[in-house]
Amino acid sequence: MFGEYSLGELTSIFVMQGFAGLILFSVFLLMALGLAIIFGQMGVINMAHGEFMILGAYVTWMCSTFFHGYLPALVPIYFFIAMILAFLVSGALGVAVEWLMIRRLYKRPLDTLLATWGLSLILQQFYRSVFGPREVGVELPQWMLGSLPVTDVIEIQINGLFVMALTTIITIAVAVMMYRSRWGMQVRAVVQNRVMAGAVGINTEKVDRYTFGIGCGIAGIAGSAFTMIGSTGPTAGQLYIVDTFLVVVFGGAASLAGTIASAFTISQAQSIMEFFLSGSIAKVLTLLAVVGILMLRPQGLFVLKVRR
C-alpha cells in the first residue's frame, strides 16, 4: 500500500490528510459537543440531532442568499451572523421539542429513541417540502476562499483554519459553561441527584429544557461549519449521526476530554485510511477498532469519577 510512494510523498500525503482530518474532527466535535450535553448529561438518545445540524446549515444558506442578494456590503461578515442565527433557531426548536415531547419520556430510553427517530423523519420531510430535494451550497466570503502554501506541495485551506478556530472557541465556551458557570453546576447537580437538586431549589425542568436547547443550538453551529465542507440536503444529517454517537460513546458519554480525544482519533483514522482505501472500507475498519476497544473498556476512553 505504501510501497509505490516515496518517503517525501508519504510525508506530504499524511500532512494533507491529517489537515483534512482536522476539518472533519472539527465538525465531529461540534456535533458531539451538543450530543454529549444531551446524551451524556441528560441520558436522552436524540436520533434527530443530525436534523438540528442541517437546520443550522439551511439557516446559513438562507443568510448567504439574503446577504448576497440584498446586503452585498455586509457579505464579508454574514457568516458570523448566520452562526448566531443558526444557534438561536436550532436552540429554540430544541427547547420546543423538549417541552412538547422529551420531558414526557425521561427514563424511557427506547421510547425516546423511537420518538426522536420519528422526529428526524418529520424534519427531513419538512426540509424536503420547504427547501426542495436538491442539495444547496453557500457562497463563502472572499476572505474564506483560497489556501495558504506551506511547502511546494502542501497547502492549507483558509476556511478549514476558520472551522478549527471556531471549534476551539466553542469547545472552550462549553468547558467554561459546564465547569465554571452556575448553569453548569446546576446541570451536574441534576445529573448526580435530581431529587436532591430539586430539594435545594434548583428548577430541574428548566435545567433540562435549557440543556437540551443548548445542545441543539451547538448542533446548529456545527451545521454552519458543515456548509464549508459539504452541500446541504434534507437527509445530510443522517450521514453524521452514527459517527457522532460513536464519538460520544467511545470517548465517554459525560466526559468533555473524552469527546475531544475520541473525535480526533476517529477523524484522523478515517481521513488517512480513506486516501489509501475506499471510504466504506475506512469506515468499517474504524468501526471495528472502536467496537474492539469498547469491548475491553465499555465505559469509554475517559470516565468521570463520582463519589457514591
Rank of each mutant, 00 (worst) to 15 (best):
W117C: 02
Y106P: 07
V130A: 05
L114E: 02
G132F: 08
S129G: 03
T116Y: 05
Y70N: 05
G118D: 07
I122S: 11
L119R: 08
M83E: 03
V138W: 08
G137T: 15
H68R: 11
L74V: 12
I77P: 02
A86G: 09
R134K: 11
L100P: 00
V95T: 05
L119M: 14
E139Q: 14
S64L: 04
G69N: 12
P76F: 10
S120Y: 08
C63T: 08
M101T: 10
L71Q: 05
S129C: 01
M101P: 02
L74I: 11
L93T: 05
S90N: 07
M101Y: 04
R108E: 12
F66M: 11
W117S: 10
P141S: 10
P141V: 07
V130Q: 06
L74K: 00
V59A: 04
A92R: 01
L88S: 01
W99P: 00
F131T: 00
L93M: 14
V89N: 02
V130G: 06
V136D: 10
Q125E: 15
T116D: 07
W61Q: 05
R108A: 12
L121A: 11
R108Y: 10
A73G: 12
S129E: 12
L121F: 14
L121I: 13
Q142M: 07
E135C: 00
A92T: 14
S64H: 09
L113V: 13
V130K: 09
A73M: 13
F80L: 15
P141K: 10
V89P: 01
L71N: 01
I84F: 13
H68C: 00
I84K: 00
L113P: 06
V130M: 09
L93A: 11
V95I: 14
S90F: 05
V95F: 11
L123P: 04
G91P: 05
M83H: 03
I77K: 00
Q124L: 08
Y106F: 15
K107M: 07
T112S: 13
V138S: 14
K107Q: 13
A82T: 04
Q142D: 13
T112D: 01
L100C: 06
F131I: 03
R128W: 12
E98P: 05
E98C: 02
L110N: 04
Q124H: 08
F126E: 02
T60N: 06
S120N: 09
V75F: 09
L114W: 06
I84M: 11
L121R: 06
Y127D: 03
T65L: 13
M62L: 15
F131L: 07
S64R: 08
F66C: 04
Q124G: 13
L114T: 05
S64A: 13
G132L: 08
E98Y: 04
C63V: 07
M83K: 03
S90K: 06
E139V: 15
G137W: 03
T60V: 13
Y127S: 02
L93P: 00
